[in-house]
Amino acid sequence: MSTPRLRVSVFDYEAGNLHSLVKSIETEFTTVRVERDPAAAVRDTDALILPGVGAFTPAAERLASGRDAMRDALLGGLPCLGICLGMQLLFDHSDEGPGQGLSVLTGRVTRLDAQRVPQIGWNTLEPTAPLDPLLVQSGLDTVYYANSFVCRPTGESGRHVIAYTTHEGDRFPAAVRVGNVVGAQFHPEKSSAPGVRFVRAFLREAVHIAAQRGTLGSSATEDVTP
């Protein structure tokens, strides 16, 4: 029997290029599948990736049929990495357009308050204390952004910001973590070697979580408990 691998599902909103992202999560210890159905994306998996290309409304529409299942899975401890739009989907609503996010974090997505929008390019992270293990392990400090909108956590959610970035005068959450759910407003898969290390560190964390839960690499049939 081969070593169990981490099952990683990527929820595809069919909005764009997943090549670099999929490549960054294809490792010797993962099996990756791309799912267009949101409920299927959280079934029989050890980690969920919400990719970063597209607009809020069409993505929320794609999400709608499986939103509750996905939200339950994330609140139940399924490791998730949401990138850019994928991070925004962790919140409630967006000024970009109508649609219901996952509301794993409370808050709204609003337009960057800056002259030059979209923010395109490499910007620096301002981590909060204590430093998140993913930032420690990756050594990530300058990251690639291509965004017009950012998340504005409200209430308790503000405590889940693990790094900020400032564009012109607007300081916004660069990354959040709530339990096993991580959001990155930047594109780690486009942030060169340290960005790839950030993704891999998330995956290794997911391996530990899956091993603890005893689900690592288990198949659908093995999941059925009497």
Binding site: S20, H187, K190, A193
Partner: peptide, 11 residues
Amino acid sequence: ARRTAEQLFIP
């Protein structure tokens, strides 16, 4: 482009 995107981790 497809082959490049699989190996390139910058935009």
